[in-house]
Design a protein around this nucleic acid. Structure first.
Lengths: 163, 163
DNA sequence: CAAATACCCGACCAGTTCGCTCGGCTATAT
DNA sequence: ATATAGCCGAGCGAACTGGTCGGGTATTTG
């Protein structure tokens, strides 16, 4: 299990999705504005997230992404694994022989450590993160700051105005 | 907190050091042979480990590295942090403002998650890893395989032969 | 003293990943 | 028909990875 900034971006984006779940599909453009992540980079991340079955997409105007499952059923570990493209091959691929028929120290040690971290992050769901008060506070600020996006009432009003 | 192969190499090398602690200073050449890590790469890693006060060095013939503290007092998190050179600057450095005076979702989320993982890995010491039976087994195999190195008795015998 | 050992240090380098841009495509709603 | 917004691939600079090479310097030993 690798833990890099890429995974952080993915978790942040998924959390944004979870926070605005009730609005229906969320466009990547919205997430890009709110979380200040490049749109194209988000596209790449969500391509992986979709292939992993964590989100589903709605094409066309008014479309976007939504969580494929409840936020309570999506854990941080899944998100990180989805985008990290386990090219693993930790020099001793899988549990077979490395360096000539024998298993290396690294193998036992790291797979075990990795499993423990994985288990730990498996215990944290998106819903857990959404529930935190600080997260809700920041989300509220982010919503206010972006005129392009607002509450569901505002959104309906904007759509109405376009007609 | 980042979790990459670099950290794994460092933990493996430190574990090797802990496993052979009773032999006195262990040369990087020995670790390189046993763990199949490039000597030059080990030098880079141990430069960081030394600067972080995790190991101390003995120069000259018969020299090498030894743990600066007991294995029970060195945890996995420390080792990983030592080599990873926290260039962090997570786009919102520290706890100050990011993206214009406000704190981003990422900031709260990741520092918190990072702290939890850190705490988790802080709970695992080198001594904990040494105690595992699988680790001891692999270490025994590795010792046997390398004729250039052996038990302390063998080492004394070799040194005696050179005199 | 001279030689061997082994830590120390910096430059450099191929390969990969990161984060991102750009251009163009397709499905869908209005 | 047009605009939206998901899809997709090529490419790109910067950083990181894992390593080589060529030198040092401290220390032990013959």
């Amino acid at each position: 299990m690798r833990l890099t900034t890429k995974g952080r971006y993915a978790v942040t984006a998924m959390l944004d999705l979870a926070l605005h779940a009730e609005r229906g599909p969320i466009s990547l453009a919205d997430i890009s504005k709110r979380q200040d992540i490049s749109l194209s980079y988000l596209e790449q991340l969500f391509s992986r997230l979709r292939q992993s079955g964590l989100v589903c997409s709605v094409r066309g105007p008014g479309g976007g992404y939504r969580l494929a499952r409840s936020g309570a059923d999506i854990c941080v570990a899944e998100i990180i694994d989805a985008v990290n493209e386990s090219v693993d091959a930790t020099s001793c691929g899988g549990n077979s022989d490395c360096s000539g028929g024998e298993q290396c120290l690294t193998h036992y040690l790291w797979t075990d450590l990795s499993r423990q971290i994985h288990g730990f992050l498996n215990g944290i769901s998106l819903a857990d993160l959404v529930e935190r008060s600080e997260v809700q506070e920041v989300a509220r600020r982010q919503d206010c700051r972006n005129g392009a996006d607002g509450t569901i009432e505002q959104k309906v009003a904007i759509i109405g105005g376009l007609q």
